[in-house]
Design a protein around this nucleic acid. Sequence first.
DNA 1: CCGAATCCGTGGCGATACTG
DNA 2: CAGTATCGCCACGGATTCGG
Lengths: 133, 133
Amino acid sequence: MSQRNTGVTVQAVNAHACPVREVLDRVSGKWSVQILVAAAHGPIRFTELERSIEGISRRMLTLTLRNLERDGLVTRTVYPTVPPKVEYELTTAARELHETLQRLTDWAERNRVYIAESRAAYDTEHQPELVDA
Amino acid sequence: MSQRNTGVTVQAVNAHACPVREVLDRVSGKWSVQILVAAAHGPIRFTELERSIEGISRRMLTLTLRNLERDGLVTRTVYPTVPPKVEYELTTAARELHETLQRLTDWAERNRVYIAESRAAYDTEHQPELVDA
DNA sequence: CCGAATCCGTGGCGATACTG
DNA sequence: CAGTATCGCCACGGATTCGG
């Protein structure tokens, strides 16, 4: 729909080039991963997510969930009870993604110290402005 | 601590919690991954990177390289020749990261169609604004 | 050839308030 | 309980210009 997309905004241009970017774009959000992790154990309710994630706002929780749902990574189930109840659950694709992300976690933990030291070293040499003056 | 933590800006709060975020934060940049990929084959010069990446500006190439260098992911070697020559090379840590990222690529390629369809389906149901008015 | 410095637009995200 | 709507900040990144 809508032939006149004046913007095209990356997507078509970039998407084909590198599939990694595609993944990263949808995981690089500030909260996406934490939601995936929090929901990894099984179906979880909105408020439970909100409390288990610490620091997330209602707004961002909603937005991120919507995006994940849109990408087919979570399913949203509404129970029309008296106090509304909504459960979110990871799809198969998301669970596979979650596993893959754990490889990254491993890497991060193995290299965390190394990176920290690298930074420290770099910052020491390249003193911000030390204008010895 | 922190008398006036008007912002605190993530970091201290988030860093410890999830190592994945740490990785993502330094890979989520628009160009980081592409640089890692481009430099995966071996040492590569600044201008070579600039041309092989397509669409990157000099500024972003420099900035991203600096960050990667700071994190100990690339080494920067300057040859004080007449026309300056600078080569960038991945460190061991970066090469391991690069491998890990390929798992993500695999996932992306396996689920690319699924995601596209999910999006299409979602966008069809949740008609943007169809305000039938 | 390899950068650094400046200006500026875009959008991700937080804070707050309102709804069914 | 589970959202939606509105606002405003600011980091990311693009364009351009200057320098060794």
